[in-house]
Every structure is written in C-alpha cells, then in structure tokens.
Design a binder for these strands. Structure first.
Lengths: 120, 120
DNA sequence: CTGTATCCACTGCGATACTG
DNA sequence: CAGTATCGCAGTGGATACAG
C-alpha cells in the first residue's frame, strides 16, 4: 500500500489527470470538466515515462479503483482515462504534499548546500 | 525531490520520529517532548530495515535539514535523532496521507477484489 | 552502541520489436 | 492509437563482516 502511494509515476499520473490535461480548445467551457486524458497524451505529458511503466501504472490504478479506463471502438481505438471520486480525493491529498514541496524546496536546497560545504 | 519524498524509509522514519517512539518511562512527563530516538531504537522499530538503508536514509534526511543528529560522547556512544521544524511540518503533511490511506484502504481492497474476479 | 565497507543477488526498468 | 512481449543491464538494497 505504501509502496503504491509512494510510486513516482502514480504520483505524476494522478497529478496529470487531476490537474486536467491541457487538452482543451481555447475558449471551451471547462467547468465541471471530467478531466479525462488519452493514453498518448499521458505518454507525451509525463516526459521520461516508458510505455511499459505507463501501462503498468495505469493498470494498477484502475485495479485499485482510482481511475477508470474507457475504450470507445472507433478506428483507431480511442481510450480515455479518468479519475474516480476515490482517485480525486487522493489527488487532493497529494496536492497538499505538492504545495509543501514547492514551499519548502528552497529550504531543503539551502540546507543541503550548508551541510555539504561544512563537510567539504 | 519527488524521489526523496516518495521513499519508503523516509516516510517510515518520519512517522516514527513524528509519532514519538515509545521510549518514555511510565509516568514521565512527555508534554513538549522533542521526540528524539536512538539509532538502535529506529532499527528495532522499523522492522525490515537494514543498517545500510537506515543509515543512508538518516544521512539524507539530515542533509536535507529534516532531522538533526546529536551524538553525546558517552561510552558507548549515544546518538539521538530528532525532527527539525521543517521535518515536523513535512510529517504533518504525511499524516494527512496516512489518514487518507487508513480511511480508504478498504475501498481500494474491495475494488481490487471486484476487478480481479471480473478478470478471472 | 553506532556505524562503515564490501560483495552480490535480484529485479525493476528502459529499449526494442511486434500486434489488434 | 494503444497496447503486449521479450531481453538485458544497472542500480538498489540485503547480508555480512569489520571498526571507532
């Protein structure tokens, strides 16, 4: 469980889906947006993720009921991923962490510098 | 940064230090407790951690200014680890996550079961 | 007691190639 | 487009032994 929550890609996918990808047309009404994203969108957005990890992580999140996978049988196939309520609530938690990270990143970096020079 | 925050042992050490180890004498006054813990205490408390990982994690946390290391030159040496204010604030964040995990663990497990049987 | 140093097994992950 | 399958390596972490 802890392993799942503290997975790098889990965190990033949640963030991506929760913050709603930039897939909207200019001027479109995004209120109440379900914030769904395509497979390829995620692949592009999460720079550095391999197909393997993306698929793997997506599957585990679906299994855990944090996201839904919806395939519409167009040609070629279209697949949309979306946060469930559960996933959304987790995302809210994560946002708190993210905020903390952004606020205190400087402190941490400063501490590292101090610590390192004291050693060197 | 993300990697650091989403490290298993980081999370657990923070939890251990933040929740104050059970190192108190019965009836001792624990209010305003600095919640410090010894190396060996952590080693015992965090079941499954190797000396290597404990030391490594402790060092990185110290470097980031999240914990302090205090060695008192008794014989044998006594070393106490303690959360800094920064570390404490992170711990608070983590508690939120922990709470979420405890509240929704059941849902996740249920979803897994449903999902698995549907596949099988 | 509180570490450091070394070795090594394991596996997680990336890269690549292929399919519906 | 949205995956699955396979291979191979690198880095992570465990076990062990040693030291201040």
């Amino acid at each position: 469980m802890l392993d799942r929550l503290s997975d790098k890609w889990v965190t990033l996918i949640l963030a991506a889906l929760g913050s709603g990808g930039g897939s909207h047309q200019p001027g479109a009404d995004c209120s109440g947006e379900p914030r769904s994203m395509r497979y390829s969108q995620l692949l592009r957005l999460l720079v550095g993720v391999s197909q393997k990890m993306l698929t793997q992580t997506l599957r585990s999140l679906e299994r855990d009921g944090l996201i839904t996978r919806t395939a519409t049988p167009t040609v070629p196939v279209t697949v949309a991923y979306e946060l469930t309520d559960l996933g959304l609530s987790l995302h809210e938690m994560m946002r708190g962490l993210k905020t903390w990270a952004e606020e205190h990143m400087d402190d941490v970096l400063a501490n590292r510098e101090t610590h390192d020079t004291r050693v060197a």
